[in-house]
């Protein structure tokens, strides 16, 4: 009875874990946009390679331990009351040296590529031709400043196959910049400039998130990185450098909205080039060119914009943006204006 119980234990534990492993292998990275297992940059690729290497060593060690464990518990031991004489061995120098040296060798095998990757992934100076972007983390959104003066929030675009050098700064407390498919995280520490260097290799949209607990809405501090072809990037960059899109002639709703905006408290925090000068919140000059709002939490649709402006706390508890209580028509006008800022 007792013996069977232990048998059941190991089979149960192993079966569960194997089953989960298989189930998970079944789901591809496609359904997991933030997976670390589908590298899309050189940095992520290096880490992935290292990860696989270490995992293989880990698996070998695990196999040895489980094998020894099973032999010890089920094969080379007796149960109380059985006749087999109990062993009294309490030491074996050879064995002990073996299981000290074995792991040591494995660690040497792991540490060499580890250190190589550490130095390779943290170059002291930016690689030649790198695009240097300043990233400022705020509670709870991201600001991206490009060297040519372009400015955006939460949805940066970068060119493919060109080295990117991010210099990370914080406006308030510690955050952490993480786009899993593009590489490991780097903390954003107030008073300190941290760097992150990588080169994206596949165009696409890669979601990221703040990874260091930063207060109430830490969970709502998301963003998206768009990796563009060089042409697309140049186009996007040009558009960002231009002023706000002109309101189409005859679009009364939008031009009303522009007036609502100009007279609202929004202007104290938000910038729309040529119209307002606030800098506490995200720059809204090209608001409509972004696919999401509220730091990646909501899709950028008119309903969501209205919902966000009317009650930011519902979407993002603790957000610094006050609720703007506008009567329906005014809100519609404002939303129409904002959604026109391509």
């Amino acid at each position: 009875m007792i013996g069977r119980g232990s048998n059941r234990y190991s089979t149960a534990a192993i079966a569960i874990q194997v089953a989960i492993a298989l189930a998970i292998a079944g789901c591809s990275a496609a359904g997991h946009p933030m997976t670390t297992l589908a590298p899309k940059s050189n940095l992520a690729q290096w880490i992935q390679t290292l990860f696989i290497e270490v995992t293989v060593w880990d698996a070998i060690i695990l196999a040895i331990v489980v094998f020894a464990f099973i032999l010890a518990v089920f094969v080379f031991s007796s149960r109380v009351g059985e006749a087999a004489p109990a062993s009294t061995a309490s030491s074996d120098l050879g064995l002990e040296i073996a299981w000290t040296l074995g792991p040591t060798l494995v660690l040497v095998m792991i540490s060499v590529p580890t250190i190589r990757t550490i130095f390779r992934s943290q170059p002291v100076v930016a690689p030649a031709g790198a695009l240097e972007i300043k990233v400022v983390a705020h509670q709870w959104w991201w600001e991206f400043d490009y060297p040519d003066g372009a400015k955006t929030s939460n949805e940066p675009h970068i060119p493919v196959d060109r080295p990117i050098r991010l210099s990370l700064e914080s406006a308030d407390i510690i955050h952490s910049f993480w786009v899993p498919q593009l590489g490991g995280k780097r903390d954003v520490v107030p008073g300190q400039i941290n760097e992150l260097t990588f080169m994206a290799t596949v165009p696409g949209m890669y979601p990221g998130q703040c990874a260091e607990f930063c207060g109430l809405s830490h969970a709502n501090m998301r963003f998206r990185v768009f990796v563009d072809s060089p042409d697309d990037f140049a186009k996007w960059d040009r558009a960002q450098l231009a002023g706000p899109a002109a309101i189409p002639a005859g679009d009364l709703l939008a031009s009303n909205g522009a007036k609502v905006f100009a007279n609202s408290p929004c202007t104290t925090c938000h910038m729309i080039q040529g119209i307002s000068k606030g800098y506490i919140g995200p720059d809204l000059t090209h608001f409509a060119s972004r696919t999401t709002l509220a730091a990646g939490v909501l899709k950028n649709t008119p309903e969501n914009v209205a919902k966000w402006i009317g009650n930011p706390q519902e979407t993002k508890p603790g957000a610094n943006m006050p609720a703007l209580l506008l009567p329906g028509p005014k809100m519609n006008a404002l939303v129409a204006y904002l959604e026109g800022l391509k």
Partner: peptide, 9 residues
């Protein structure tokens, strides 16, 4: 080491 990476105060 860190002081080489401090942001200007």
């Amino acid at each position: 080491y860190l002081s080489n990476h401090m942001a200007p105060i």
